[in-house]
Design a protein around this nucleic acid. Structure first.
Lengths: 219, 219
DNA sequence: GAGCAACTAGGTAGAAATACCTGATTTTAA
DNA sequence: TTAAAATCAGGTATTTCTACCTAGTTGCTC
């Protein structure tokens, strides 16, 4: 452990940070890196959403680093719950993949910032400080410095309806089943699927699903 | 940075370790954690397979921590290449998911040890030391201590042929295309698919692919 | 050598998906 | 307000997939 006995700051002045991330190595790594930061106070780290909700009740934090894909209760589920309890909490969402639609989805849920796990650690640090001080963090800023994520930022530009259908396809539903779910004709669903296939440059349902899951949608 | 000026060891006595992992936060985290270990000497860390092959030529290591899913050249591809160059190298493979078939696949490729990213960091440390000293590491040992990964160790018991077909399905191939690839009848492929659907409790190609990708096969 | 699992492959029927086409209404943005 | 985009939906033909069935060959083990 790294002791910082010569630090004059007290915990009140430091940004209180918590981490919810199921990959233990990654979590412990972030913990180790954050412990070296003098202006951050790592309050707790947990491996799933249920644990997160329990801990955050006893230990208030300013910034939460949240993984979308966790067991028991995933980030997508617990994000709105926590935000309702603590509306001023800033949430930095981590996800294995980065894409326009998932970014929009996460921001709609109320996240303050969305970062791919491919990000450099310095980007995560910048983001924590920025969301705490300014209330937002623009990934654009970091892009000017680090051009590593270029290939990940594809813009598929799915329409809301297409995203809905994409999601249901990833739940193993047929066009007919999707049509019944959405109260539309199965021919309409097929039309949407054709447009999704054009946008994803695939030629089958399998291709669509492979595209979506590999990009980290709906997991 | 943590300086260890009072360490009496020289680098020759320490286990030389390298990391190939594209998720920078995770990589930097492992680096930070490994730097605290006195008996390890972290030689280099890289973000893709091509970089790995370049670096390892100039900097010999004892143990390589390798991520399966990397850009440019993935772990699956560069593992055999590197092992041919350095047959005595011990390789600890990290992967987002853990399952019996992918374990067998990785060991067949020549990896010394396979760990899920969910592992505790101490498991990774144990594994590094164990593969270096004993030439193997049994995940069973760590399981007795940590029972966290129980739900991930499902045994689907796919046959080798079924795994081949599973892989090709995840490459967006139709039964006909798979049949041509494997020089068998498309009816045979369909038969295998039916058996895969039984084992995965799904009823369509989409279901098979969703199952495979969510479990972390072929990524 | 009997039993078993794995791999092979065919028949038939029906369901689903795909590839083209067409055109309607509604919503959004310039 | 005009144009563009999104949503809806039908026709027709072909391909692919799924669900049943049967059954031969190989290789392994008890």
């Amino acid at each position: 452990m790294v002791l910082k006995g010569n630090s004059m700051r007290n915990n009140e002045e430091r940004i209180r940070v918590a981490i919810a991330e199921d990959h233990q190595i990654l979590r412990q790594g972030i913990v180790a890196l954050l412990e070296d930061e003098e202006n951050l106070n790592l309050v707790f780290d947990v491996g799933d959403g249920l644990e997160l909700i329990e801990k955050i009740k006893e230990n208030p934090v300013d910034v939460l680093i949240l993984d979308l894909n966790m067991p028991k209760m995933d980030g997508e589920t617990c994000l709105p719950i926590i935000l309702k309890l603590y509306p001023n909490l800033k949430i930095v969402v981590l996800s294995a993949y980065f894409s326009e639609p998932i970014l929009n989805f996460v921001l709609e849920l109320g996240a303050t910032c969305f970062l791919p796990k491919l990000s450099d650690f310095s980007v995560l640090l910048d983001a924590i400080v920025s969301v705490h001080q300014k209330g937002f963090y623009s990934i654009e800023e970091s892009k000017k410095e680090k051009r590593l994520n270029l290939e990940l930022e594809m813009k598929e530009n799915f329409t809301p309806r297409e995203l809905e259908i994409l999601k249901l396809l990833c739940e193993e539903k047929t066009s007919k089943e999707i049509a019944e779910d959405l109260f539309i004709s199965h021919r309409t669903v097929e039309g949407h699927k054709l447009r999704i296939m054009e946008k994803t440059k695939t030629t089958s349902t399998s291709g669509i699903i492979i595209f979506a899951l590999r990009k980290g949608y709906f997991r």
